[in-house]
């Protein structure tokens, strides 16, 4: 098996789309033929099982693996429609009291022996939960929204990642609204990448389908119908695999007269 990749998906701020990205990337990577494990490192507020629609099939958790109550493969929950994907569920919140970075390292090492990709869904914040997840990772994807508080918190996280031998650190800008950006009522992709000085892995467009897919517990990348966000997730997964495809251009689909006018208004005059 070729070199296995352990990737932390983190953001600092909560609610920017870490878990949704983890679920969709996990499905997309598995779908393209790579064995993939997603590890829910958010022991306090676990949700990854819910987004993947696997909440009713959990028997053991990461905690049972650490306590030697079960073998790793007993705790892994295989996705029915995408058997290349397995979830290792988070234990209960009391684990936070005793869990150490080495425990997390042990789990991720076990996973990376068996899977090509290990995606670690990191808890929000920069406290112990984050540091545990960080210790277990080699690469990182920082998720942020084009919004002040999210970018500020992402900057904090990047500062910590930079001191921890994590490489590469790549950026995903989530919940992009092309019209607001064109009207200059939202930080642009260039603003965010240059402020954080990170390479851009991809963007994800704002899309109501994300909420609908969460309701159903079926990640967008699972469906054959491709919504805007779903195309973005696929693009991110291709780029993560190292395929030479460009980042999705938020303004590409827009060529109406109104959009031309908006473009004219963005012309720099001095």
């Amino acid at each position: 098996m070729k070199s296995n990749r352990t990737i932390l998906i983190c953001s600092g701020k909560g609610g920017v789309g870490k878990t949704t990205l983890t679920a969709n990337l996990g499905i997309a990577l598995a779908n393209s033929g790579s064995s993939t494990a997603v590890l829910d490192a958010d022991f306090g507020l676990r949700n990854l099982d819910l987004l993947l629609g696997l909440e009713n099939r959990i028997i053991y958790t990461a905690q049972d693996v650490l306590d030697n109550n079960c073998r790793l493969d007993q705790a892994l929950v295989r996705h029915k429609q995408e058997p290349n994907l397995a979830l290792l569920p988070a234990g209960d919140p009391r684990m936070l009291d005793w869990m150490k970075p080495d425990d997390m390292k042990k789990i991720s090492n076990l996973l990376s022996e068996k899977f090509e990709y290990v995606l670690i869904d990191c808890p929000a914040g920069v406290e112990d939960g984050f540091k545990n997840a960080l210790a277990a990772s080699r690469e990182a994807i920082v998720v942020t929204n084009p919004e002040l508080s999210a970018v500020r918190d992402a900057d904090r996280v990047v500062g910590i990642l930079n001191t921890c031998d994590i490489d590469p650190i790549q950026l995903v800008v989530n919940r992009v609204r092309p019209t607001m950006m064109a009207n200059q009522e939202m930080l642009s992709i260039e603003d965010v990448t240059s402020i954080l000085s990170l390479p851009l892995l991809g963007i994800v467009l704002e899309d109501q389908q994300v909420i609908i897919s969460t309701n159903r517990g079926e990640p967008l990348t699972l469906s054959s119908k491709k919504s805007p966000a779903s195309k973005c997730y696929l693009n991110v997964s291709q780029r993560l695999r190292g395929e030479d495809v460009p980042v999705i251009d938020p303004n590409k689909a827009k060529k109406s007269l109104k959009d031309k006018f908006i473009k004219l208004m963005q012309t720099k005059i001095f």
Binding site: L148, M181, N183, Q184, E185, M186, L187, D191, I195
Partner: peptide, 13 residues
């Protein structure tokens, strides 16, 4: 446009 304000405030903070 508020994006300019956002950028400036962000750079400062």
């Amino acid at each position: 446009a508020s994006a300019n304000t956002a950028r400036e405030r962000l750079q400062l903070v």
